[in-house]
Simulated scan of single mutants.
Amino acid sequence: MRKVLLAGESWTIHSIHQKGFDSFTTTTYETGIKWFKKAIESQGYELTHIPNHLIQYNFPETVEELNQFDIVVLSDIGSNTFLLPDLSFSEGQQSINKLEVIKRYVSNGGKLLMAGGYISFSGIDGKSRYENSPLREVLPVNCLGKDDRVEVPEGVVPYVSNHEVFEKIPKNWPHFLGYNKTSEKQNTEVLATINGDPFIVIGDFGKGKSVAFTSDIAPHWGSEEFVNWEYYPVFWNNLFQYLDK
């Protein structure tokens, strides 16, 4: 069975409820993996999910460990989550640069997908900072180094090419509600655009490949129409199979 490692796509919400003079707080933990998990498992893939708060403990520290997976997916997870484990940030000690490990994994023949979101590419307020990380060389697009969000609440439909990744998928895709603005690098395959900007781009790095999918694999940018689309599983399967060629 083909194995997929998904890092990120989780968050904690801490709310303050103010009721006149009195107030109280609540905290909830959520993930956005259910649509992606269901989709790829229906196509015969096995998914391992490491949420943001467990990256420093559970994300592989060697290329050999990453080689257990056919593709690594980063979704709504910023570079700081990889670069600032407690060992370095709180204790002032050296630690493994896991983004360098991902870089070597791809260079040696691995596959990497970065999906869009508020904490992807450069991200909201430029906080994701991948343009200053080892992955700047690996990704098939250039990160802007500033707030790169394009919010489209009225919805925007991507333009997809006749590439084999879209085989048996209609040309008319569901709408998206936003994406990360990037620019494609030279010698890459731009499979689809959105508002004229890169949407799906594939590039080679060393012996491996990387993919940029610049909108979200889940709501809110990934609309309900997209994540519940009958071709949502087909697209991911087609993409992963193409990366294996």
Rank of each mutant, 00 (worst) to 15 (best):
M1N: 08
L5V: 03
S15G: 00
I16E: 11
H17V: 11
T25S: 15
T26R: 06
T27I: 08
T28Y: 07
T28M: 09
E30C: 01
T31P: 00
A39T: 02
A39D: 09
G44C: 06
T48M: 08
H49P: 02
Q56M: 12
Y57N: 07
F59R: 02
F59E: 02
E61L: 01
T62H: 11
T62I: 04
V63S: 04
N67Y: 05
Q68I: 03
D70H: 13
I71A: 13
V72E: 08
D76C: 00
S79D: 06
P85Q: 03
S90T: 09
S90Q: 13
E91V: 07
G92Y: 13
Q93M: 12
Q94R: 05
K103H: 09
Y105G: 04
V106R: 04
S107E: 14
N108H: 04
G110S: 07
K111M: 10
M114L: 15
G116Y: 04
G116E: 12
Y118I: 04
I119K: 06
I119H: 08
E131K: 02
N132E: 13
S133D: 12
P134H: 09
L135R: 11
L135S: 02
N142M: 14
C143P: 02
L144G: 02
K146E: 13
D147F: 06
V152I: 14
E154N: 09
V160I: 15
V160P: 09
V160E: 11
V165H: 04
F166I: 12
F166R: 10
E167A: 13
E167L: 13
K171F: 05
N172A: 07
W173I: 01
W173P: 00
L177F: 10
K181M: 12
E184L: 06
K185E: 12
E189M: 14
E189G: 00
A192N: 03
T193A: 07
I194N: 06
D197L: 09
V201H: 00
I202G: 03
I202R: 06
K207E: 06
V211R: 06
A212K: 04
F213K: 03
T214R: 10
S215N: 03
D216G: 01
A218Y: 15
P219V: 01
W221C: 00
E225Q: 12
E225F: 02
F226D: 01
V227K: 06
E230V: 11
E230Q: 12
P233Q: 06
V234M: 09
F235C: 08
N237A: 13
N238S: 13
Q241A: 09
